[in-house]
Structure formats: structure tokens, C-alpha cells
């Protein structure tokens, strides 16, 4: 169990570093990738609402510490996303890649909506059409990554179970 938690912590830290160093240098198109969101959604799909929420909150805090507008802003949004996505964990057929993809689509759109509302409410900065043009690309890229990430984590989980550590 401890090993599994350590694995997710290290994965989160790795993606956090990539998100703040590599992704912003990848240009406008690939720069829409949000690895922390992807990991939160994939984890929540596997672990359920409670763990998903806790993971989202932790990831949000870490992200805000690494680079963020306000400590807690990402934590709130990712907490909600983690909890909501976790609700689907019991409804889905685990080997399917379609459900994670659809959940990735919806959760990325919700993430945009929640972030817009939070930043708009906190700073009075309501993003306009120019910013929203990035939404389709973001939704597409992140949903594909959610499906891939879910498949990898699911495989990892199965291997852990087979080894008797699950």
C-alpha cells in the first residue's frame, strides 16, 4: 500500500516538474496539455471519489506551490474534479478506454469552467473569446492523455494485484 502511494507521489512530482518546465515550451497547441489534471482524472477513475478528491486537493496544493496564482485555487478546482470523476469509477467497465476518454473530455471542459469562475470571482478577470479558442484543443489533448494515463495506471494496478501488493 505504501509502495503504491509512493508511486503516485513520485508520478505526481514528475508530472508537476514537466508541467512547469516542458509543457510551457511546447508552443500554443501542445501547451494546452495539463498533466496534473490528466493524472487527477485518471487516478480518480481508478480510486473512487474520496481518494480522487484527496489526490486532487494534494495535486492542486502542490501545483500552487510550484507555480500558481493563489494557494488553494487549483486545490479547490481539482478537489471538485477528483471527487466528481471518482463517482464514475464504480460505473465503468475497467478495461474500456472509451469511458476515460469521454470523462476526460467532460472533466477538462468542467475544469475550464471552474477555473474561469474562480479566477473571475477572485480577480475580476473573465477570460474572453480569445482564450476560449484554446478549449477545443485542450479538451481533445487532455482527454486522449486521460485515456492513455488510465490504461497505464490500470495496468500498473493489475500488476500490483497480481504480485499481491494491491
Amino acid at each position: 500500500m505504501l509502495r503504491r502511494h509512493l508511486f503516485f507521489c513520485l508520478l505526481l512530482l514528475l508530472l508537476l516538474v514537466l508541467q512547469t518546465t516542458l509543457v510551457p515550451r511546447m508552443g500554443n497547441f501542445w501547451g494546452q496539455i495539463d498533466l496534473i489534471l490528466v493524472l487527477t482524472v485518471a487516478y480518480a477513475l481508478l480510486a473512487g471519489p474520496s481518494r480522487g478528491a484527496v489526490f486532487g486537493m494534494t495535486a492542486g496544493f502542490l501545483r500552487a506551490i510550484a507555480s500558481g496564482p493563489t494557494l488553494g485555487l487549483y486545490a479547490v478546482v481539482l478537489y471538485v474534479i477528483g471527487y466528481s470523476v471518482g463517482q464514475f469509477s464504480q460505473l465503468m467497465y475497467r478495461k474500456s478506454m472509451l469511458v476515460p476518454w469521454v470523462v476526460g473530455l467532460v472533466s477538462t471542459a468542467c475544469y475550464w469552467l471552474l477555473m474561469t469562475v474562480m479566477v473571475g470571482g477572485l480577480y475580476g478577470f473573465w477570460i474572453g473569446t480569445g482564450y476560449w479558442l484554446g478549449l477545443p484543443v485542450s479538451v481533445l489533448l487532455n482527454s486522449v492523455l486521460v485515456a492513455l494515463m488510465y490504461a497505464l495506471l490500470y495496468k500498473h494496478q493489475q500488476q500490483e494485484v497480481a504480485r499481491g501488493r494491491g
Binding site: T21, P24, P69, M115, T116, M118, V119, Y131, G134
Partner: peptide
């Protein structure tokens, strides 16, 4: 600059 946070809601660096 050692870290970049860039998305529609955040434009900051460390």
C-alpha cells in the same frame, strides 16, 4: 527562470 506557469488563468514564472 526555472519554472513556468502558463494557462488562460495564470501567467507567472519562478
Amino acid at each position: 527562470i526555472i519554472s513556468i506557469g502558463q494557462n488562460p488563468w495564470q501567467q507567472d514564472v519562478i
